[in-house]
Write a protein that binds this DNA or RNA. Structure first.
Length: 392
DNA sequence: AATGCCTACAACCGCCTTCCA
DNA sequence: ATGGAAGGCGGTTGTAGGCAT
């Protein structure tokens, strides 16, 4: 199937005269193609022309550059030159120790997702990161070192061969991704599958007006195996790393999240203050959690609501993910919610509870409702968790 | 000086996705 | 809905420069 698709696409590319293929016939001058478009290293003069074009017209429409300026470069070449060398926000020079560490950590999480990694490294390009990684890999191979440092443990991937890069996950005692973020391990590990790398998209990919109750499409595409995602029994032994977090702490965390979900918390939209962040590390294995499943909840809200406090955000959402929470094993009845306002005094409780429930009904009307679907484990779980609380 | 080897990194290529008319 | 253009991505190649012989 895949092969066939490739054949079709290649055939299509061959008749696409406008594609930026710089291939030249044997014997020809390899510095330009049949359209007299130059290839190879850029000169300072060419850089000036391109920079001037961007200054006047902004980025995009790269194919217009040639017509507009006479610069003998195809659009793709212009775009590449701008994004990798000319844009003003680029950092130059060797990677700092922090950057190196971050690349390694990100690679452990994402594999060869250079562009995704670049999003987490301001001023660095995917190309730089890729070159750094490949160089580093060669060096380590030469001296007989493994791909990752000892504190980032691989999860064996049965599909890997010598040529395929293995997929890895953080070890339980790792400090998380990067210095500016501390993505909790359970966030990632909950989405790790034995044979499939899984990438949690950074919050920058989540539109400002998206907030809860939909599993992001890109996440589904990346996992490719949502069924396996949900099969706890297939989590390999080496992923099981228990910590000493008492179960009641986890339950409390869930309750706190749910409380905010229902009654509003202090969280700002971009991941606000959190007492939860002071918790010791949670178990990295989903099997170790006292809940059956985990899930991502994303909700669409009107732009105007975006910064209102009652919109739930994960307490641990610190730039990577809206929220992940762990549904309870036993479905809870709606009346349980009156007990979730621990801070409210008894006198206010009922009125406040009723009022907020009405508010929440309004909020929930914005949610994308998920129908029960036994064939889709994510939808199925989503439905089973949400529905008892907020029947339509 | 000439040559060969190695390294870093810039740039290309093909494929895929997204956008838009 | 659809096809073409543009944008984006990741693998790979090309090349300049440094160093050793």
């Amino acid at each position: 199937m895949h092969h066939h698709a490739n054949v079709v696409l290649e055939g299509f590319a061959m008749i696409s005269l406008k594609s930026c293929t710089l291939s030249s016939f044997s014997g020809e001058d390899k510095s330009s193609d049949e359209n007299n478009l130059k290839k190879g290293p850029w000169t300072a003069a060419e850089d000036d022309i391109l920079a001037e074009y961007v200054r006047r017209h902004g980025t995009g429409n790269w194919n217009i550059v040639q017509k507009n300026t006479g610069l003998a470069r195809c659009g793709k070449s212009c775009r590449l030159r701008w994004t990798n060398h000319l844009r003003p926000d680029l950092r130059r020079g060797a990677f700092s120790n922090e950057e190196q560490r971050k690349v390694i950590e990100l690679h452990a999480l994402m594999g060869n997702k250079w562009a995704k990694m670049a999003q987490e490294l301001p001023g660095r390009t995917d190309n730089e990161i890729k070159n750094f990684w490949n160089t580093r890999l060669k060096k380590r191979k030469r001296v007989g070192l493994g791909i990752y440092p000892d504190d980032i443990k691989p999860v064996f991937n049965a599909h890997n061969s010598e040529t395929d890069q293995p997929t890895y996950t953080h070890s339980a005692n790792d400090s998380g991704v990067g210095s500016s973020s501390c993505v909790s391990r359970e966030v990632f590990n909950n989405f790790n599958t034995p044979n499939q790398p899984h990438f949690v998209p950074p919050i920058s990919e989540v539109p400002a007006d998206m907030q809860c109750l939909k599993v992001p499409q890109e996440m589904m595409q990346l996992s490719e195996v949502p069924e396996e995602m949900m099969q706890l029994s297939e989590v390999p032994e080496e992923m099981m790393r228990m910590s000493e977090v008492p179960e009641e702490m986890l339950l409390q965390e869930y309750d706190e999240f749910l409380e905010d979900f229902m009654y509003g918390g202090d969280y700002e939209c971009s991941g606000g203050p959190s007492s939860i962040s002071e918790l010791p590390p949670l178990p990295s294995s989903r099997d170790a959690l006292p809940f059956e499943e985990s899930m991502v909840v994303v909700r669409e809200v009107p732009q105007a609501e975006t910064n209102q406090h009652y919109i739930p955000r994960s307490p641990r959402s610190n730039g990577y993910l809206e929220s992940i929470f762990y549904p309870p094993k036993v479905s809870q009845e709606p009346e349980n919610y009156s007990n979730m306002q621990g801070e409210l005094n008894a006198g206010n409780r009922e009125n406040s509870s009723e009022q907020r429930k009405h508010e929440n009904e309004d909020i929930l009307s914005n949610f994308i409702w998920v129908e029960e679907d036994r064939s889709d484990p994510i939808k199925d779980t989503l439905y089973s968790v949400i529905h008892p609380f907020f029947p339509r």
